[in-house]
Amino acid sequence: MMATAENGSRIWYQSFTDPAVDAPYFDRLTRRVQGLAGPGFSIDVHGMQPGDRHLHRLSEMRCSVQAVRNAVAAQEQGYEAFVVGHFQEPGLFEARAAVDIPVIGLGEATMLHACSLGRKIALVTISPVFVAFHEEQIARHGLQHRVVAVRAVESQVADYNRAFTDPETYQRLKQDFSRQSAPLLELGVDVVIPAGGYPMLLFARERSFTIGGAMVLDGLPVTVLAAEVAARLKHLNGTGTSRTPGFALPSAAALQEFVQSP
């Protein structure tokens, strides 16, 4: 029987970072995400070893397999929802087809909420490498007419880790982000999304953050609350992933083969 929020509902938040290698970020992410939990909910933040560290499709694919296996583990351990806490969210659809608990993607949840805040949305990612990834992601979610542009700052993970405690580095990254966002305003963009956990966490200190009137949307609370809503709806009336052929649950044999494969 599914636990209700009143009895204590657990959410598994899956980061694609290594808790040891990326400790400055992972520790702050854990405190931030756990602090967003509503009454009756608790959130466990999990990482990966190794994390997604090579800015390449092969790393994304490797991590996506681990994420789906962890979604299966989360369901077996009684979690009420699973969050793919990587903006590109590789493995999102596969995880939804693997488990019967809600699976929420950081990128999808943020972009969908942005659609309720403005007419045109844009992403600013942490590296030019990810621009093509996000353009494919936007098309996968059918949001091409709402998410109209993707830009990138030239940054490294080390820059964000340093910016958490160094005001000068923080201001430089904020200025770089604002500089990349400025041309988006000429396109009529209403909402700018920092496309990644690192910039979202970094800019969380800015309340009502805007650039030229455009809202800069922090997707972390959006995604946590989306997971809570999905868990509540699942308990309330059984609302869940459609089980038409595209998201049909696997047979026991197919699931076992996937989980046990090297």
Rank of each mutant, 00 (worst) to 15 (best):
79 Y>D: 02
74 A>P: 11
106 L>S: 04
71 A>K: 08
71 A>G: 11
60 E>T: 10
113 H>E: 15
94 E>W: 07
64 S>A: 15
65 V>C: 06
117 L>Q: 14
104 I>T: 10
61 M>Q: 06
93 F>N: 11
105 G>E: 01
85 G>K: 11
112 L>V: 07
93 F>I: 03
96 R>I: 00
98 A>S: 15
73 A>D: 03
73 A>T: 11
82 F>G: 10
61 M>V: 14
119 R>H: 15
52 D>G: 00
96 R>N: 02
71 A>Y: 06
88 Q>M: 12
97 A>F: 01
111 M>E: 12
117 L>P: 05
72 V>P: 05
103 V>D: 05
89 E>I: 05
103 V>P: 10
63 C>Q: 09
84 V>A: 07
79 Y>T: 02
102 P>S: 05
56 H>S: 15
106 L>K: 11
103 V>K: 11
63 C>D: 08
87 F>L: 08
93 F>E: 10
62 R>M: 07
70 N>I: 01
50 P>Y: 10
57 R>L: 15
106 L>P: 09
75 Q>A: 14
82 F>V: 05
71 A>S: 11
103 V>H: 11
97 A>R: 15
111 M>C: 08
97 A>T: 07
83 V>S: 08
86 H>C: 14
100 D>M: 04
59 S>A: 13
63 C>S: 14
67 A>T: 12
56 H>M: 12
73 A>W: 10
53 R>C: 06
88 Q>W: 02
74 A>D: 01
66 Q>H: 12
117 L>C: 14
65 V>Y: 08
90 P>G: 02
89 E>F: 01
85 G>L: 03
56 H>L: 09
105 G>T: 09
110 T>Y: 01
85 G>I: 06
113 H>Q: 15
54 H>P: 00
106 L>M: 14
101 I>H: 02
76 E>D: 13
86 H>M: 04
96 R>G: 02
54 H>N: 12
80 E>T: 14
68 V>C: 09
68 V>F: 04
117 L>I: 07
100 D>P: 00
109 A>L: 02
75 Q>G: 12
118 G>L: 09
115 C>L: 15
56 H>V: 06
52 D>T: 11
105 G>D: 01
95 A>V: 08
65 V>A: 08
62 R>T: 04
86 H>P: 00
76 E>S: 11
95 A>Y: 03
55 L>M: 11
73 A>V: 12
66 Q>S: 14
103 V>S: 08
94 E>C: 06
100 D>R: 13
89 E>N: 15
52 D>E: 10
52 D>R: 12
90 P>E: 00
55 L>R: 15
81 A>R: 10
110 T>L: 08
106 L>A: 06
113 H>T: 15
88 Q>D: 07
56 H>Q: 10
69 R>A: 11
101 I>D: 04
115 C>V: 10
51 G>D: 04
91 G>M: 02
